[in-house]
Design a protein around this nucleic acid. Sequence first.
DNA 1: AATTGTTTTCAGGAGAAATTGAAAACAGTG
DNA 2: CACTGTTTTCAATTTCTCCTGAAAACAATT
Lengths: 167, 167
Amino acid sequence: MDVHEGKQKFIESWGKMASDWGINRTMAQVHALLLVAHEPLTADQVMEELNISRGNANMNIRALMDWGLVHKQLRAGERKEYFFAEKDMWTVVRQIIINRKKRELEPMLKVLDEVVGVEENCPESESFCAVVRDIRKFSHKANQTLDTLLKADPNWFTGMLLNTMVR
Amino acid sequence: MDVHEGKQKFIESWGKMASDWGINRTMAQVHALLLVAHEPLTADQVMEELNISRGNANMNIRALMDWGLVHKQLRAGERKEYFFAEKDMWTVVRQIIINRKKRELEPMLKVLDEVVGVEENCPESESFCAVVRDIRKFSHKANQTLDTLLKADPNWFTGMLLNTMVR
DNA sequence: AATTGTTTTCAGGAGAAATTGAAAACAGTG
DNA sequence: CACTGTTTTCAATTTCTCCTGAAAACAATT
């Protein structure tokens, strides 16, 4: 397999996976393209490679910068902007966790904290509260675990999690 | 807050979170409804509570059964089918991991295994392979970790992960 | 085998999300 | 400050996913 075919397969697959996980497919494809790019690319190159419009390229590059997954490079004497992806996988995963935790997990936790306070005065409300308490406990633990993970050493995840668990 | 308001908030929030994660919102709302239901419900009750059509209710209940998150209850002398959700959080999380791993993580791993074999004969192909190797290593470890997690004791996750990590 | 109650299917429609492309805004340069 | 190359914005359009509702299939009962 040659490198172009490999890149294409990778980009397509990365995009597919992302859309399964509720992330815009094109955004993930731009990310994939920059991940495997040999050098920083301009918006025009991204448009060209992925056959997307200027507006689309611009929006998704911006979104990726907001996520902390892509950075801008300015070159002296050039007006064009170049973009490159963060390539360290641990950092990539960190950024994704940070973003999704904030956007999606924490709002859910807030609601759980609210509804766990429902008055318990009948079998129905009691079983409701029991279920919510359980989900809430679980979610808070997951959230704390993620916080710990984020504070951890860069090599920690790949190293320890596995070693501790595999027997 | 009364139990009805609590249930509604919970159902709405669960649905929102699911759609952020690429899961059909209505499917998650049906799941949430059954999770907090005091007793098993019929398809008609689900339709009624969530204001959805018969077809929609049926399809999503089926999908939830495929995921192993909802079960059918048959009652002697009744032709209607009753549905109830698996309420143990550890089992719920297990089922979700099993399903998403199979549907989304593993196909990606397969592609990574393929493209890592790209011939390395120029700077471009070398940097491509280096990135792919890194992602591949990371993903395989994550996959193995999930396998171990799935084999683990029901109380393992909530217990150990946190205790080991929090200092 | 006809009747009734229930579940399943799926073509077409509705709504949501992503994309385009052209105009506006911006930023250097002579 | 006018000109040029570049990025940003956003209304209109396209694309995709999801939902509906009615018909078909199914299954228990008489």
